[in-house]
Every structure is written in C-alpha cells, then in structure tokens.
Design a protein around this nucleic acid. Sequence first.
DNA 1: AGCACGCCGACT
DNA 2: GTCGGCGTGCTC
Length: 828
Amino acid sequence: LNFPEPSFPLFSQTETFFVEVILPLALPKCYTYRVPQELNDRVGIGRRVVVQFGKKRIYSALIKSIGQDPPRQYEAKYILSVLDEHPVVTPLQFRFWDWLSEYYMCTPGEVMSAALPAGLKLESESLIIRHPSATPDGIELDDREYLIMEALEVNREITVKEVMEILDLKNVFPYIKSLYEKGQILMKEELREGYRPKKTACVRLMPEYSEEEQLKALFETLEKHPKQLALLMAWLSLSYQQQTITKSELLKSSNIGEGVLKTLLNKNVFEIYHAIEDRIKKKGEEGKESFTLNEMQQNVLEDVKQQFLKKEVVLLHGVTSSGKTHIYARLMEEAIQQGRQVLYLLPEIALTSQVISRLRKYFGDVVAVSHSRFSDSERVEIWNRVKEGKTRIVLGARSAVFLPFADLSLVIVDEEHETSYKQFEPAPRYHARDAAIYLASLNGAKVLLGSATPSFESYLNAIKGKYGLISMTERFGGTALPEIITADLSEETRKKMIKGNFSSVLLQGIDSAMEAREQVILFQNRRGYVPVLECGLCGWSPRCKNCDISMTYHKYQEQLRCHYCGYSGKPPVLCEACGSTHIRFLGLGTEKVEDDLALLLPTVRISRLDLDAAKGKTGPSRIIRDFEERKTDILIGTQMVTKGLDFENVSLVGIISADQLLNFPDFRAFERAFQLMSQVAGRAGRRDKQGKVIIQTFRPGHQVIKSVIEHDFPAFFNQEIRDRETFKYPPFFRLIKIAVKNKDQVLAQQAAEQLATLLRNSMGSRVLGPEIPYVPRIRNLYIRNIMVKIGRGDSLPKVKAVIRTSIETLSALKDKKTVSFIIDVDPY
DNA sequence: AGCACGCCGACT
DNA sequence: GTCGGCGTGCTC
C-alpha cells in the first residue's frame, strides 16, 4: 500500500537485494528495505538512500549492509533512490560508530545524527526553493514537475511534505531530483551559501593597465575627473603594500564614495572579483610564522617520538606557556610531510584563539577548522576534503572525531582535562578524548594528550605505564612561574579587615597594580549558587560520610543531602569545626563582585566577562578587545577568562573564593579546583616580569591550595588519588548515571525506585540512589538519578546488559510507558 | 523521533 | 452532539 511499485521493466539483473539501513532516529535497530532492481548497481555500503519511514516521513538513511534474504516477518518497502555515487561513510567509521553506540549505550541512529553534517541529512522538512535563474518556460518539464514549479511561483519555499500533497503522491523525490538537475530549484542548505558567500569583494585593475604606458594614458584621460583619479591613486598606493585589495578597504582608505568606483568599473578600469576570505592577507600578517624549538623543546619532541615507538598514547604534561603548541606543530609537520592526516582537538572556546590563526598561517590551506559556527555547506565541504585526503590537518572541537579520515596518523588532544570534551545532550553522550583514543587505535594513529593539569584518568594511565608520560616544567623563554600567595579570610574576618568580599591583601595588590598601570584579572566561578552551606568563619562545609562530597541544602525539606548516594541529614546549627554559628550559603556571583569593587574603587575601569556578558550584543570579543587595548583596568570573569586568552599587561590575578571551588558538591571538586586555579594563575605575568596571584580562602593550609602555590601537580595527584580509591570513584571505578524522567513526580520516583531495586538484584551495592538532583525538575519533567559504580573486577558488557534489560523490563509495564531513562556512561 | 489511532472532557 | 486533549503503539 505504502510503497510504489518500480515503474521500469526489469533489467537484465534479476537478483533482488535488501539493504539494512541506519535511520537518523533514536531507534534501537536497523531497518531493512528492498532495492528496486534498476538500482542494484547503485547501492553500496556507506551510501545514502532516500526511504519512506512510516506513512509520511522521508529520511536519508545510510546503508549498513547488503544482503539477499528477504525479511520473514514483514514485507520490506522499496528504497526510493540512492543519493551517492560513492560511500560518504567509510568502513572504519562504521566500526567507530558501533563502538560509540555500544560504549555510550545509545542507538546507531543517534550516532549517525551526531556524526553526519546537517548538509548530508535530508528530511521531509527540507525546503525547496526556486532557483534564482530558473527558466521553467524554456525547458521540458513533465506535468508533475510543472506543478511543483507552479507552486513555487506562489510560495517562495515549500517543503517536501507539501510537494507530496500537491502531487498527491508519496514518492516525489524523483521529480525533485530531476528539477534540481535541470537547474530549476535549490535545496535550502545549498541556498544559504548563495545568500551568504564567505567571499569578499576585491578590486583589481584591468589587465591591460599593467603596462606602464597604458597606465600613463589612463592618468591623462582621468585628469578632468579628480575623484576618479584619487581613487586610482589610492588603489595604487595600497597595491604596493598588499596583494589583495578589498572593496571596503579601498573605499575607506580613499574616502571616496561607491559611485566613483562604479564609474571606473563601467569604464573598464577596475574589475571586481571575489576572493575567499582566508586567503586575503591582511597588512602586517605577511611573513611566515615559525615554530622554532629551543633545546628543552627539542628534547621533548625527541622524547615524544621515542615514546610513540612503544606507546599508543603519550601524555604531555607541560606547565602553562611551556610551548606545547610548538611541539604539536612539529609533530603535525612531520605527519603531513609523510602525506598523512592529523586531528587536533581543542575545547570549543579555544577555537577562536590566536593559536588557530598561527597554525593556519604556518600550514596554509591543508588545515581546516571544524567549527559549529560554520554553515552546513561549509561543513559538508570539510567532510569531503577530509575524506579525499586534501585536508591534512583538522583543528576542531569534539565533533571533529566524526570526520571521515582517510589516513590518520596523529591525534592531538589539547587541554585534555577539559570537561567540555564530554557531550551532555543529546546522545551520544561521548567523551571526545576517549573516543579519539579509540578512533586512533582503529586508524593505527598515535595520540598525544596535552595539559598543564592532566585529568586523573589520563595521569593515572600514564603513571601505570599504559600511556607514555613527558613533563615540561619550564616556561618558554625562561619566564618565571607566577608567585602565588593566599589571603587568609578567617584571619581577616576576625580582624574585620574585609570590605565587600575583598581582603586587604587583595585590595593592596590591586592598588599597587593600578599604580604601576598594570592590569588585573579577578576570577570568580559563578557556579557558586549551588546551595551548599559554609561556615563564615573557618570555611568548613558539611560533607557526606560515604562519598566525601559536599552535601547539598534542600530548602523545602530543610535537609542536607548527598546527591550521589542519597544520604541525608539535618543542616547543622553550629559549625562542626569551630563551633561558630556563622553558617551561611555559598553563593557569590561575578555581578556582585563587580558591584562591590566599583564601590570600593570608583575611578577604576572594570569590566566583566561571563556567560551573561558574553551573550550581550557585542559578545565576548568586545570585552576582550577593550581589555587588550587597556581601555579597562580590571576584568572580572568566570572560567571564560581562563581559556585561551593571553593578555600582555596583567600582573595580578585574584581568586575571590577558592572555598567555593573546593566545596562544590562533586567528587571531582578538588581536581577541578586545582585545574581552574592553576589555569587562572597562568594568566598572570609578563615576559619580563613575574606575575602575582592572590588566592582568597578560609583554608590557606588546604592541600589543594598548597599544591597550587607550589605548582606541584604530582603532589596534589598523589594526595587526592587515594581518596578516589577509598571512596570508589573514577579513575578506579567507572560510573554510569541513569536519569529517570517523568512529568509526574510520583511516577518518576516510583520508576526510579523500581529500577534501582531491579539493578540491585544483580549488582547489589554498586547501585546508588535514586537521588533527587539539585535541579529536581527540568522542562516540566521530574528527575531522579541512579548511579552505578563499576569496579575493575566487573564486566562492563555484563553491567550494561543488566542495565539494558532492567530498563526494558520496566518500560514494558503498562503504567511506565511515559517514563524515560537517560543513560550517561562516564558522566562529568 | 513523530505520527495515527483511540479514548475521555469542554463547548457550540 | 463534535473538537481536541494526550496515552500507546509502531515504524522495515
């Protein structure tokens, strides 16, 4: 009923094929379609096909396998068409996808949706637009094609669905395709490029004036038109300095209107051409970037190469500004000299940094940047160039692991500890670093992880010898590491020396920096609004007995809870450490810091960089530029100020509340606190002057703070790693988080309890919860979390199987149909 | 995911 | 008496 019969007589090929396809949906399995015989020679594994799914919907699906056995349970529908002449997805990628969906417990369709650039996906919703230069009258169109064109006269754009209604036909794709091939219509993704070309209008002299004589003659003819002459002069003077002259540059430098340029264009003096933006060299950018290594770096490079002979993964632990990028650049260079490919992963925010432009200048157009801001068509282009091996180096955020590398030899994961490598929503909830390591092993490539503050996962692997380990302890150019001191908040509170959250130590530091006309960065992590209690005198904060994690305050129940195991208790009236009654909430945001500081220092120019400020009209770039150009003196910021920014003139960095970082209710709180503090500290100092860092804290003797002061990551690691083992946390144990969601609170709770019981039946005390998360309801769905802790001796596949079957069992119950279960493997 | 079918309450 | 709310099942 729902599928069209093939309308062609059978060709000589009489065999019948069935293809298993992945649909870009959260469906647990693949679906089988029948290949019309005239398409027999067009199907192939990894090619996209258009299929009807259900009564109305049309998708581009991906061929996973081809067979000849017809399905027994049902009659297969026919595929409607084949979109590709060659596979868009390589066999290696399929293996990578399989691993991802297995490891992260999601469907193949979810992986496909994440992996394929939007431009390679086609849904019923795809828009069809009349081609700007369509000539429907001058071309042979059949009735149905004509109907489509007629509809496009009325509406500028129509959907595939609407085409189905207009033609009263389900299989409309052949007509759309035919019109497309005849140049009458465009699909929306492609149109975007037409509207917003990434090209810039440039102006050049017509070739006939390259001869001196002709040019002279031109001057004479223009003598009576001073404006035109001035424009010509302006162009010539620019042409001495640069190869490419953009239209806007020319008009700006000459200060002459566009009308005059038009005249000269009409007179065939100038012509306009369009150059791709990247290729246009701006003034002062010429000259090659170089990545010369000093002796220490040269040794490190040799060491990395040595270790790659024995190890698949090497961890490069190098302090900030030790020149890790130089090492990367050399390794990349060697890879591309061998004609092979490199994947260079960076956290999303770092993709805008100066490092990118330096690498692009150095390597030229074998480098591609894969960025979420690019248009669909640009991403398809990157996809294709990577597949053909034309792009040798990809700089990208986590999703770049999905590109179809032809010959990958090296993966670099910069700032490998960054939590933004983990995807939260939607599935696949993958960790790009871990996925990249698997990807590399599939491709026979090596992995270099780089960080000044490695993740515990990676560092433990390195210490145990699974990864190679190389340390760089010196800053590039011999610049000293910043001097870090603490401001003891307990003492200053007692002596009443604190003014609006600022200690006297910090205020003095700011004063002397201002006097020396230097700049200051103040760091305050805004995540502080999680309701955690803290003693206002000594900084003590209640922690869970079982998990060693800060307890979270639940106002409506007047309770303290551990959001890992569900342990709960009454909030303390007195501080258990010092006996004081000054129990208060943590929760001091950047805005408050800004206000307080403005009151204390009315003449100082203060700006703020956080997610709210960055979302404003001008965005983060304006705030950053103003600070760079010294239009502002003090920059107050969240984590954003720690990433990929280098300011010349910052001599002082202040950390407003270290305790807020330390008391964050998460087992990784200390690890993160160390990372963040070390990173902000790295912003202090200049080439010629040692920087200074002031950490405000109630606990100056805390192990984490001591290690930060001493720049001693190994000491910190050795101390902290023991607790991880004792309390059964990663990297010794693996976590799987299951979020149970429903719009009925009672049902969510019930389902979570039942699931936990079911899981406990076979896994016992490995199962924690259900627990109410800090934000108990999101988008009208109540949430309960269950955590499963998996030890070394446990079989991961078995645990996953138990989780899967338990959820299946529960979902089959009549009253649990509306409950959803979201699995997050290795949650961050 | 999204669509259809089917069963109950509010309004013309 | 119909419109439309969303719970449930299914999609090759």
